[in-house]
């Protein structure tokens, strides 16, 4: 009887192909999102007269760099099954700390490192609250959002202060500035590209990245597989803090002032970008490439609608609809499976 069963089992299996290493396929969802981006780009090029000019495209890339950086960082936390609401405040705090440090006579690069460390520290505290005190990520980072904002407003008295001129190079200087027609590519764009490549690599190719997915996919199975869950989560929040700090310093540098009131509700744009790019708030799913494309969709919508004459309010509606629509499409596709 057992033999019979065994034969049945192997008979069924004959229909299946023997295992072969499969080629990596780009997720269909990312094609759809990228297609949407291209579509919007072409649409606005036709509708808005000056949209498809080199100058405008470069400005778009520069402006979008902040949201992209934040989106990349927050994607790590969302993949673990968490969230980071504090990054908008962290932007203001880190940029301001860097400006204060620079104004105190510290070397510019060192002041910026100070800002970065502040961001990493905020992320570490988030992670410690979430793993050590078992506070839900939404609450822990909501608290951090308020504390960081309150702190930066307190130390600055809510006032912007100018920074030394040299502080502005990072945000305003460009490379490859050949002519009037091609004003050059801003440093922030290069930073954004470098961060996307590095963190994309970390997420896809390193143990930290793999564990990030594993925890989001099944935290208990990860723990029972010997993965140090708390450590990986803390790293994810530190990455989020680091990316937000980069964005904060770039923002402060572009304005050449500290911005204690800056970055309010930016975290929501970053989360939206990540979600548009296919990151699942349930954890376990998401990519850096998705977050980048998601940010650019938001950026293109913003710039394109402005140039088409739509108001800021209409932009909000459009972005909101895109967020809802992209997730709805994911859900419908998932259900069909």
């Amino acid at each position: 009887m057992a033999n019979e069963n065994l034969q049945n089992a192997s008979g069924q299996a004959e229909a299946e192909v023997r295992a072969k290493p499969g080629r990596k396929k780009l997720a269909l969802g990312q094609f759809v999102i990228f297609g949407a981006f291209v579509f919007l780009f072409i649409l606005f090029s036709v509708v808005a007269k000056n949209f498809f000019t080199m100058r405008n495209v470069l400005t778009l890339a520069l402006q979008t760099s902040t949201v992209t950086l934040m989106g990349i960082g927050v994607t790590f936390t969302i993949i673990t099954g968490g969230i980071d609401l504090s990054i908008g405040s962290v932007i203001a705090l880190t940029g301001t700390i860097a400006v204060i440090a620079a104004n105190s006579g510290m070397a510019i690069w060192l002041s910026m490192v100070m800002g970065l460390l502040t961001g990493v520290l905020c992320g570490f505290l988030n992670g410690a609250m979430i793993t050590g005190l078992r506070i839900p990520p939404f609450i822990a980072t909501l608290g951090m959002m308020m504390v960081a904002r309150g702190f930066v407003l307190t130390i600055t008295n809510a006032m912007s202060k100018p920074a030394p001129d040299a502080f502005g190079h990072l945000g305003n200087d460009t490379l490859f500035s050949f002519s009037q027609k091609f004003p050059g590519i801003g440093y922030p764009v290069f930073i954004m590209i470098a961060v996307a490549i590095i963190f994309g690599f970390i997420l896809r190719k390193t143990r930290v990245g793999r564990y990030t997915y594993a925890i989001g996919s099944n935290e208990e199975a990860s723990r029972l597989s010997g993965i140090k869950v708390a450590r990986i989560k803390v790293i994810a929040y530190m990455i989020s803090g680091f990316c937000a700090a980069l964005a904060g310093i770039i923002l402060a540098s572009r304005m050449v002032t500290s911005q204690p009131n800056g970055g309010i509700s930016y975290e929501l744009n970053a989360i939206a970008a990540s979600v548009i790019g296919g990151t699942s708030l349930m954890g376990g799913i998401g990519t850096v490439a998705g977050a980048v494309i998601g940010s650019f969709i938001i950026g293109v919508l913003g710039v394109g609608l402005t140039m088409s004459g739509a108001s800021f309010f209409v932009q909000q509606i459009a972005i909101g609809l895109v967020v809802i629509g992209s997730v709805a499409i994911d859900q419908i596709r998932y259900k069909k499976k």
């Binding site: 997915y213 996919s217 099944n218 208990e220 199975a221 990860s222 029972l224 376990g284 799913i285």
Partner: peptide
């Protein structure tokens, strides 16, 4: 499924 595998992976 709950404790052994990361089923989405």
């Amino acid at each position: 499924k709950e404790e052994g595998l990361a089923v989405k992976m």
